[in-house]
Design a protein around this nucleic acid. Sequence first.
RNA 1: GCGCCUGUAGCUCAGUGGAUCAGAGCAUCUGACUUCGGAUCAGAGGGUCGGGGGUUCGAGUCCCUCCAGGCGCGCCA
Length: 644
Amino acid sequence: MIQEQVGRTIRRILGTNEVTFNIPPKREFGDFSTAVCLAQARVQKRPPLEIAQELAQELLKSKLPFIREVTVTPPGYVNFKIDHPKYVRSVIERVRRLGPQYGRTNVGRGRKVLVEHTNVNPNKAMHIGHLRNAVIGDSIVRILDRLGYTVEAANYIDDTGVQVADVVVGMLYLDEPRYNGKSEDMSDIWAKYDGKQPFDYWCWDLYARVSQEYETNEPLKAKRAEVLHLIEKRDNPVAKFAKELATRIVKAHLATVGRLNVYYDLLNWESDIYERGFWNAAFELLKQRGVIEFETEGPNAGCWVVRFGRGLVHTDEGIRSEDKILVRSNGTVTYTGKDIAYQMWKFGVLGRDFLYKLWGVQPNGKELWTTAPDGIESDRFGRADKVINVIDVRQSYTQQVVYDCLRRIGFVKEARNSIHLDYEVVVLSSAAAAELGAEVEDEGSGIQAMSGRKGLGVKGDDLINTMVNRVRDNVRSPESAEVLAAAAIRYFMSRISTGKMIVFDFDEALRTTGDTGVYCQYAHARACSILRKAGITQFGKVQVPENVTLPEQNLVKKIAEFPSVMRKAGRELSPTPLARYAFELATTFTDYYERPNPEASEQVPFIKIEDPVLRTYRLALVDTFRQCMANCLDALGIAPLEEI
RNA sequence: GCGCCUGUAGCUCAGUGGAUCAGAGCAUCUGACUUCGGAUCAGAGGGUCGGGGGUUCGAGUCCCUCCAGGCGCGCCA
């Protein structure tokens, strides 16, 4: 906040729009500095040193509240020294006044953002790749919320796709007793699930079995098309069965991500997109605006297409058209087509809406709603100013097609406000894949994609369970183990930039030392423990000594950074800066804890300090840290532990 | 063929609109526990920031090019 204040003043004086700060190489120069005059030199065509000296003069005149001294060093840096006692007091007071609100701003006030994430096919257990999606998505929801946006978290459920159909085929036709094709009563089918393992785990294996069986069993594969067709037709026993199956899997998914504090506002079912005729509405609009054309010749004859690229192109697999097919020659609509309609709904420009029903209340106390054929009308969902779709990078092309179609229809603003938050996938190392019993096909690359069809992957719950087991022995309560495990996994998924592929490694993912969520939790719990033992809950007027030690200065400066880190995370749509910050904050606190006064021959524990003024001051800093860390962890979806 | 992403220490990764940025953790080695929580801390070794070129007073960061790896470009979903 102090740098922002200085930055504003410099912008006013120099008339520039960007001022950045950095830390000088030697402490004597100052607490922070700026090289803005070096950049200005070119613009003003004057020596940078001259500009810097004038700027320093002006800055001294404007009486910046927490600046004690402004100096200039060649070739033109302007350095600032902070009035530490004054500054420390203001930071302590600010954090205490704002409490859990510290780090929140209202830059997004009045703007609604719809963030859609998770979007896992409801036919099997989630794996760690799905976890990455959920963690990134939920973090973005939390970050944007703290920046003042109105945020709606949506989870799209594709309950009508082939993946669900495959598991339905498996349940109905793979083993005895087989479905007779018309009975309403499915109880003997449901009885195939023995309950020995979670339902989503059971389906994981079933899905892999069906997929393998397809390769040799043509009659079974024929059942897939039949089941798919019945699901799309709705209003028949198989469709009802599929919906029930998907619902049970969705419940399992919500339980899995719930362990990581991931929550939603709305579940959007693909079957309701059908039900409510979204595509028809979009199709009419596409035709009206001439975006879509009926092809009468060439490779796409009989299809409705949108013109893209340069027509015919060469690919590794031969020559094909770059035009995008939205309606196949058999009259069915493609996934991209449906997605265009759905994306329009998100902005409230489709002219049609879902019906809604309350799904339940989540552990965080917030209601979860779902779209439903027998729901009620409501105008509270969708209608967003900005839409963020959290989908892995492999969908980049399709997403761009969807957004471009919106633009062509005339929804230019909506297209511009459509953001594909693309992140890289989680893959297995060849070693990890082999450990899971996979036949590693490609020896050369050293990595192996997870595959639901092959049943190859690390299940999300398995990872969480393993982590819980690992920390269990060192915690004071079983609840702490669950929270600590969630912290470790969320942190692990958050600290790596979204653009980087995660080659999953158990040891790295389960590490509890060093740069981990466990370390951050530990620092927080330690602060809580100190305050508990000190017996202080309320701080009155805190007196700050004239000599603020270096560790104290560093801690205060770090705490003061928090709001700008939050803004950066929002700007970059990434939890990575916050994860990084949480760790830096923790190490800075540990420095302060270990050696609050490096000049002293002996370090006195805070709670044993005899001077009541110094004791209160040191403990107030501990409390300020505690609050900041709690807020940071909370933004990362990690519940801060007061005791481990 | 075209497009996107990635390449920083042995390993996993940070690195803000160019500067004072060669960083952290893990691993290795040496130290520190009757003290506020040792899942910690202090210290050491370890780098041509994939190669080359360019712009600039200054490039891990921007531009070009090459190399390596990954992904995408379906009448699949």
